[in-house]
Write a protein that binds this DNA or RNA. Structure first.
Lengths: 254, 254
DNA sequence: AACACTGCGATTGTACACAATGGTTGGTGC
DNA sequence: GCACCAACCATTGTGTACAATCGCAGTGTT
């Protein structure tokens, strides 16, 4: 708990454009990334003081980052009880996916109308990065980049509220995928992303929307939302013990 | 600037259950209300210290409230330059309305499926309150209650992400209405709200969605989004000068 | 006379100290 | 032996002091 990875505090400011929010963003991004890559498991307590020491900033900054993460639904902020990594329930996951279908359909239609050549090129680049990450076996980065692809698409739709909402949904989706993905396979097949870009470039709205909807189908068909995989709810975790009476073998330590 | 309306600070805390978020909520609600009722005009600077004195709390609380308002798009938070009441441009208003159509359609469909009798009763109550406000001539409260109606409807849809998004959209819509409404008439006719409730109660999804879409049409037809009424964007304000080549008459001093 | 630069004032950004809350643990009574 | 209660401790919530930043005004120069 005393190891302080990189002070990161005196490095910037005088450098160039003293963008004030930088520290917040760094902390935010690091925690977010750690959650997506499952270095922080759902339910993990996020102590303000501990994080402050780790990042070399005061609790004020940490608190803002946590607040932002909470607003996106990646972190749960319990009054007087601190923050924990969110562990979305199956029902919450379903709600997120329902909302995403809605938003992705609209975004796709708008992107077909408004996407510029430059944006399309950027999208292709992101798919490449995503593929690289997976081929490197970097699952966390893959999940993140896959999310960023959908976010980039939202930007092409040129609707600020939708972008903001999509950011929140994508964050939560990433967390859900990290939590529920049924193991091995690629979750967001980049093939589908590539096809989607092609359809957008051809300005074929109907095809693009169909592809996106199928893409959504594939995503949640790859999740086993019918069985909880891990949870903070002890009752749920040990429900099988309650059903079939079982010897007192000590489970892995909590 | 030195008048401190109601301290509201020593009243609670020791009293009973020190609900921690209460102060935040009070400040948030007051500022929000003031913006909707146009006691705070778009562009007004929201000094942390001044607000802190007014509400009798420290800047910490004010800052959180402003941050929340900023997240909802009602307040603009400029780094190192403080907060101002947002003044949505016509383009931003259009984006908000586009997003709202999307969300309201989905919410209506879901509400038809899930609304309980109790929720429907609550909705009817809200329409009554709304009507009362308008008949009292309390325009600000009317706008607010009208927004809360749509928010309540979102709750009936039972989808947490959608509720959260709707909250943000409704807030911004209220601000837009306060800014752009073409004068006299009721903006959200409660008749339409009543009809909508009836359709939901009859579980007639198609009718409900149609009513909602017409309702949306009426809302933005009542706004004069074609002509800016006031704006911070100098280019937009003087766009007519830029079109017709004009003599070097000095415009109002910049 | 217009432009650029520097110093000043005001306001926000950050850190820290203190207060309050909630969980936990140990003790006591039944 | 079990359950309830109370005090402790750890952690968060809040207020405030200090530092950094930005905008503006005054001054000097071209």
């Amino acid at each position: 708990m005393n190891e302080q990875l990189q002070p990161l505090k005196k490095q910037p400011r005088a450098g160039k454009a003293g963008r004030s929010g930088t520290q917040d963003d760094i902390v935010y991004a690091h925690i977010f990334e750690a959650i997506l890559e499952q270095r922080l498991a759902p339910g993990t307590k996020l102590s303000e003081e501990a994080l402050g020491e780790i990042f070399g900033v005061s609790r004020t900054i940490i608190r803002r980052a946590l607040s932002r993460l909470a607003h996106e639904g990646v972190v749960l902020l319990r009054p007087n009880r601190g923050a924990v990594v969110a562990s979305p329930s199956v029902e919450e996951a379903r709600q997120v996916f329902m909302a995403r279908r809605l938003v992705e359909r609209a975004i796709t239609e708008l992107a077909v109308q408004h996407a510029t050549a430059e944006q399309i090129a950027e999208l292709r680049q992101m798919v490449n990065d995503e593929r690289d990450s997976f081929s490197r076996g970097d699952r966390g980065a893959g999940i993140r980049l896959s999310g960023e692809f959908h976010l980039k698409l939202a930007e092409a739709a040129k609707n600020a509220p939708l972008i903001s909402f999509q950011r929140s949904l994508v964050s939560q989706t990433s967390l859900i995928i990290a939590q529920y993905e049924s193991g091995n396979r690629s979750h967001c097949s980049y093939d589908e992303h590539t096809q989607l870009i092609d359809a957008i470039e051809k300005r074929d709205a109907e095809l693009a929307v169909n592809l996106m909807m199928h893409h959504m189908d594939h995503i949640d068909s790859k999740l086993n939302l019918d069985e909880e995989s891990a949870s903070d709810d002890l009752h749920a975790v040990f429900s099988h013990l309650l059903q079939t009476k079982k010897p007192g073998r000590s489970p892995a330590k909590l």
